[in-house]
Design a protein around this nucleic acid. Structure first.
Length: 571
DNA sequence: GCCGTTTTCGGCCCGACTGTTTTCAGTCG
């Protein structure tokens, strides 16, 4: 997979073109191409092989040639030429907040500043004030920005961002004058990682909201405070932006602030062609400036002839075309979920007793759940021996006899061993209601070997689900190399479901891979991999991944009724 | 540099905030 390599090169080119003050539309073409390549769900080398580059949105003749050069030559002459014109450090300088191409170029040309360290020296010595448009305040901001860059403005996981946004909204929502309040941005689109949190408010008295916002207990620093828009930095160093609009603009503002930027650009282009203008206040007829929509999101889409598009789909990844052609998927909803198919208990490395887990799941309204503790080989996680597993199965059977509200599936998260066989024999596995198989060893093995192990496991007639199929742990471990297309095909052929592991550090499969797997007609199982009670709520992150992957309820095992579920998993 | 129900040229999304300016450029989302 060299998609990222190609995307990064196009991004670098865009940086250089900005420094050169090139045609902004040309720069945007590179950025858009980069963005689209990043979110492709197919290997770009494969696309090149089948001569399909021009089908990629935003790739024309010229960029197709450049992609070919990158893949075959391992480099791009054009980028190397650009690199000769400017020192490499300038791109880094442009990463500093509030320093864009104009300032970076000015610093370089007037003071020969070509890296962050030099810039810091100059700013501290007040030697930047000699430049036009830079005085003391800008020097201060540059120093602050350098600190931010050094600390690394990393993206946080959805699991951190969502609760934080909910807390801020909760703290704010009683402010007088707030009519509606929500989070927007990449958080509302439920991207797996988030950089900034965006909050949107509708109110007729924005001043009060701005004042209350910058006084919230989480605020460490006020980045900017205006009449309708402010930004703060929390004590954890997370930027939170807020925007207040009038109630009759709330829908348009929701669309605008939910993004993605690429999606917004597309719908604005579409509006333009139809004689409308879209901004964060509404949809306006160009002929007489009359506002024709804006209160609600759906009205904005309908005004330009589109059906409502779910936030998770708004990535300019074919959703506009699908909307135009009436082939938008009816994606999974949280309410569709009837079960959690991956839960650990005290039997292995979970924190809670079977009883506690069952009670909590009843509270959540589940129709059935699957208990899947680890298998005997995974000693570090307290894997169960055959004897202990059978004891657990017995306990579950007993429970099911007296329970009316919820069905408990006796399952196991069974290790896939080095040769692709399973950690328990068939005579044990046949006693279980659900077998979830996963790899916990040999992450560094070759792609072919790891792929083989999973393919082999799927051949086992007792295996219902492959859990966290790529093994990634965000911030700790990359996904291991797999031939996913072969795995998806095998999953469909053997009726083995692929798990969407909802644990925020995993989210494995990813949204992009879900979209790919969907083309193979595979079934999915969402599991929280819960090890302690609050983690049962992670289900919403798994649902988010499925939604971003265009998955409909019909192919999610745990969106099926218990009866349907049992039918569907038969191999 | 891409793209086409304005189709092979001439368009290309739109507005808020800051810091520096006497009316705006640069940056950001």
């Amino acid at each position: 997979m060299r998609n990222l390599e190609v995307a990064d090169i196009f991004d670098d080119i865009a940086d250089f073109l900005e420094l050169k003050n090139e045609n902004p539309f040309r720069i945007r073409a590179y950025r858009r191409a980069s963005q689209n390549i990043k979110s492709l769900n197919e290997d770009i080398e494969e696309i090149l092989k089948r001569d399909g580059l021009l089908e990629i949105l935003g790739i024309g003749k010229d960029l197709a040639l450049k992609i070919k050069e990158i893949i075959t030559e391992g480099r791009l002459k054009y980028l190397e030429e650009l690199k000769r014109e400017f020192p490499e450090g300038l791109a880094e300088i442009m990463n500093i907040p509030n320093i864009g191409p104009k300032t970076a170029k000015l610093l370089y040309e007037k003071l020969n500043i070509r890296d962050i360290d030099t810039l810091e020296e100059y700013a501290k010595a007040h030697r930047l004030s000699s430049l036009p448009g830079i005085r003391e305040k800008t020097e201060e901001n540059i120093l602050k920005g350098i600190e931010l860059v050094r600390r690394g403005r990393e993206r946080m996981s959805l699991g951190i961002a969502l609760p934080l946004a909910e807390k801020i909204i909760n703290d704010l929502k009683d402010s007088s004058g707030i009519k509606r309040i929500t989070y927007a941005g990449s958080l509302r689109r439920m991207k797996e990682t988030i950089r900034d949190i965006d909050i949107l408010v509708s109110s007729n008295s924005p001043n009060i909201i701005m004042d209350n916002f910058v006084k919230l207990p989480v605020v460490k620093e006020i980045i900017s405070k205006g009449k309708t828009k402010s930004s703060i930095l929390t004590k954890e160093g997370i930027q939170v932006d807020i925007r207040v609009v009038k109630p009759d603009s709330y829908g348009a503002a929701m669309v605008y602030f939910t993004g993605s930027k690429a999606h917004n650009i597309r719908i604005r282009e579409l509006a333009n062609k139809k004689g409308f203008k879209i901004n964060e206040y509404g949809v306006f007829r160009k002929s007489d400036g009359k506002k024709i929509a804006g209160n609600e999101e759906i009205g904005v889409y309908n005004a330009i002839g589109l059906p409502y598009i779910e936030p998770e789909l708004r990535e300019d990844q074919d959703e506009i075309e699908a909307a135009i052609n009436g082939r938008l998927p009816d994606i999974l909803k949280l309410e569709d979920i009837k079960s959690d198919l991956h839960i650990h208990t005290k039997y292995s490395d979970g924190a809670n007793s079977l009883k506690k887990i069952i009670d909590a799941c009843k509270e959540l309204g589940y129709e059935y759940i699957a208990i899947c503790d680890h298998s005997k080989s995974l000693k570090v996680a307290g894997g169960l021996s055959e004897k202990d597993l059978m004891k657990q199965v017995g306990q579950i059977r007993k429970f099911n006899k007296i329970s009316k509200d919820i069905k408990i599936l006796a399952g196991s998260e069974v290790d896939i061993l080095d040769d692709g066989s399973l950690d328990f024999d068939g005579d044990i596995l046949k006693e279980l209601d659900l077998v979830v198989a996963s790899i916990h060893t040999g992450f560094k093995q070759a792609r072919e070997k790891l792929t083989y192990r999973i393919l082999k496991a799927m051949e086992n007639k007792y295996v219902n689900v492959i859990s966290h199929p790529t093994g990634r742990l965000m911030g700790a471990r990359d996904a291991y190399e797999l031939n996913l297309d072969r795995i998806f095909k095998q999953a469909a052929d053997t009726n083995t479901a692929i798990e969407i592991n909802a644990f925020p550090q995993r989210l494995d499969l990813t949204d992009i891979n879900c979209k790919r797997a969907r083309e193979f007609n595979v079934n999915f199982a969402i599991g929280t991999d819960t090890h302690s009670l609050p983690q049962l709520n992670y289900i919403r992150f798994g649902v988010a991944v499925a939604r971003r992957g265009w998955i409909e309820a019909g192919s999610i095992l745990n969106a099926l009724s218990f009866k349907e579920f049992l039918k569907r998993i038969k191999k």
